[in-house]
Structures are given as C-alpha cells and as structure tokens.
Simulated assay, not measured.
Amino acid sequence: MKIAVLKEAADEPRVAAIPETVKKLTALGVRVAVERGAGARASIDDCEYEAAGASLGDRTEVLKDAGIILSVQGPAPSTLKDAARGAILIGALDPTRRRDDIDAYSKAGLQALAMEWAPRITRAQSMDILSSQSNLAGYKAVVDAAAAYGRAFPMMMTAAGTVSAAKLFVMGVGVAGLQAIATGRRLGAQVSATDVRSATREQIQSLGAKPVFVDSVAGIEGEGSGGYAGEMSPEYQAAQAELVSGHIAKQDIVITTALIPGRPAPRLISDAQVATMRAGSVIVDLAAEAGGNVEGVEPGKTVVRHGVTLIGAVQLARSLAADSSALFARNLYNFIAAFWDKEGAALALPDDDEIVTAIRLTNDGKVVSERLKS
C-alpha cells in the first residue's frame, strides 16, 4: 500500500502529514510519498520527510499507484488525473459547498471521505478534525482581538494609577468557545460566556468564567444532536436577545462561535447592539464564512461600525500552520490506524460502521452519502 501526501493550493498553508505521522504510517507497513514542498508553509522541510521514511516527488509521481491520498482541503479534481481508480481520498472536502467536486471525484472512481462529517462519538474523538482546528481558532480569535484592542487585557496596578481588566464575552461554548474562554482568562481578562445548551454552564464555571444564561424561559430547544447546538424556541430567542443587549453594552471584547450544521449561522448580535458598545471595542466572528453571527461582519475583512472593530474571521487555524498541521495529521493517522487491516495491509472500511457511513461520500463511481442525496 502506498499513501500519497499532497501539496495544498496556494491559499492553504497546512499539510496533511508531518514527519511524526509519516513514521507511524510506515510502521504500519505502507510506503509514504510526499509531494515536494508540501510542508514548506508549515515549517517542515522536505529533508525531514525523507528522514522519517517518506519518498519525495512531483504530483504525478506521488499519485502513481497510491491507494490512499491525504489532503487538508480536497484537491481540485483536475489535479488528480494521475490518481488510480479506487483510491481513497481523505481530507476536509467541504461536501455541501463543493458538490461539483464531489461528483467529479465519483466519476474519477475515487472513494472520497470527508473527515469533517465524522460523528461526535467517543470512538471518533481522536479523528475529529473540526475539534482540533476549532481549538486553535478559539485561541487565535482572542489573540487577534487583543492585537486589535487598543488597551491592555489584564488589570495593572501602577504608580500612575490602575488599568482595569478588559471584559471578554464568549457567545457559543463549543470547542472554539471553551478555548477562547481559557485564553482570555490566561491573558487576564474578566470573562463571561453564554450558550443555548444548559450543559455548558458547568464547563464555563470550571474555566473560571461567569455563565450568562436565560433562566426565566422554559422549553429551551438548544440541545441539538451530535453535540451541536440546535434551534431555539421563539420565546428563548427573545429572552436571550434582551439579556445579551444589556450584557454586551458593558463588554470590551466579544467572540462569537455559534454554528448550526447545514444551516446559515444564527444571528446573535444586531447592528443596534453593536452600537451600544463603547468605541474601541472588538468583535471577532468565527462564523463569518457561514453568514456571520454579527450583523455587518464581512468574511475575511476587518471593518469598523459605530467605533467597534468587527473581525470576520476565516480559517484562523491556517494562521497557525505548524500546529494546525500537526493536529490535523494526527487526526488522519488515528483514523487510518483505527481501520487498518494488518493482515491485508489495507484500509478496511465496513459498510455498517457509523463512522464510515457518516464520512463516506463516494464509492464505486457513485455518490453514496445520504446527506448529499437529500
């Protein structure tokens, strides 16, 4: 078995394998071929891959006879003309927004596996690329906010007077939100957080932050499936908007992270609420690519509205390419190792396995994912 590791497109600095995972893959009895320059933007030299046991080549050489192809973002189908039919393509394939590419993978006879669709179950935790990348994004969101904020984060007592601590509010307490809370606390901010899932209250408190929840409305529908937030009742939405309006006006930094799979990001902050914040405040919207949690945010841009800086964060993990590559590569290795057939020296993907069923998009020249059929 040969595994190919591809160099990503110009806008993607991450890489799908690092020397550490190359060593582990070769220990499984496979050959690993890495496209030249694949790790350059993640601070990995080609010689490091060679030292780990990989061979180097151009894309044609790397793809020749490869049974498994590893990538971060799904490569353009036109660049896979040398891939063998039946090869397994593994990466973050963005199936709903890149449906034409998925169809092209199918026509090329590739078995495409979208790792971002792995179910949030215990057995799949070590393979969860969304969690590993969101963790870094939550950290970077606070760092970027600190860079844009014109004041210090921690309280400082000096001979010239006291500098008050910044007030940081996190909306959405998933993986990214929890890391944002932890990072804000490390930097010395006064941190508060909210979520529609009541179970997150204890998580917020465990990190030393103040939970901000609507307690006066019954029948909250925020507990979604698979660990994600779901839709809220109209009564809860109204109560939350009132609570947030009063709280957000007192905050210096706001980080929003709310996403609902398969739907536009929920609107959490209106333009009128932005206007209540004091000049110099900063909002970082981690859901900007999905439509944004904040009215007026622009994906990939920083704009100022009512004196408040709005950062439309896009793929923040990319800005930490070395660390995000390491985590992503380990996620892929953990998946391969979990389904590796030692006797057959191949990847065995049972049709009745819930992880396989969730991530498999194409097989035998057909689109087989139920999510893409609906």
Rank of each mutant, 00 (worst) to 15 (best):
T357S: 11
G184D: 06
M115R: 00
V297K: 08
P350M: 08
R31S: 15
G150N: 07
V356W: 02
T276C: 09
V282T: 05
P299S: 10
P261I: 04
K167I: 03
R263P: 06
G29V: 05
E202S: 14
T79H: 08
E298R: 13
T21H: 15
R85F: 00
T158L: 03
S132F: 01
A16Q: 15
A279N: 11
G222C: 10
D100R: 00
Y49T: 13
G227F: 09
Q273S: 11
A288F: 04
P264A: 13
E8T: 08
D323K: 12
A258H: 01
A258E: 01
V282M: 05
R98W: 06
M277F: 08
A337Y: 01
I129N: 03
A137C: 02
A159C: 07
D45W: 03
V294C: 03
A189R: 07
R151W: 09
R14D: 10
I283D: 09
G39T: 14
E231L: 07
K366I: 00
A176D: 00
A272N: 12
D341C: 01
P261Q: 09
N293C: 12
E289F: 00
I248F: 02
E8P: 03
T60R: 13
A17V: 08
V142F: 01
K373A: 09
R305E: 04
A16G: 10
A33L: 05
S198Y: 15
R330D: 14
E298C: 09
T162E: 15
G219C: 12
Q133A: 09
I204N: 15
A114M: 03
T183A: 05
A279V: 06
P261Y: 05
A124F: 00
L327M: 15
G91Y: 09
A241W: 03
A337W: 03
K24H: 13
A313N: 11
G344S: 01
V191H: 12
I69T: 01
V314P: 02
V34Q: 12
R360W: 01
G86Y: 03
C47D: 11
G307T: 00
V284Y: 01
R85D: 14
A322Y: 06
E370C: 05
A338K: 06
T183P: 11
Q179T: 10
L178F: 08
V304D: 11
Y149M: 04
R14Y: 12
K7L: 14
N334P: 07
A239E: 12
Q73P: 05
A249Q: 12
A137F: 00
K24L: 13
G184W: 03
T194P: 02
A118F: 03
M156R: 05
S206W: 10
A229I: 07
N331A: 08
A159E: 04
L93G: 02
V314Y: 06
S270I: 07
A54D: 09
T60V: 10
A152V: 09
R330G: 11
A141P: 03
D65E: 14
V196Q: 12
V314I: 13
I18K: 08
S216Q: 13
V163P: 09
R197P: 04
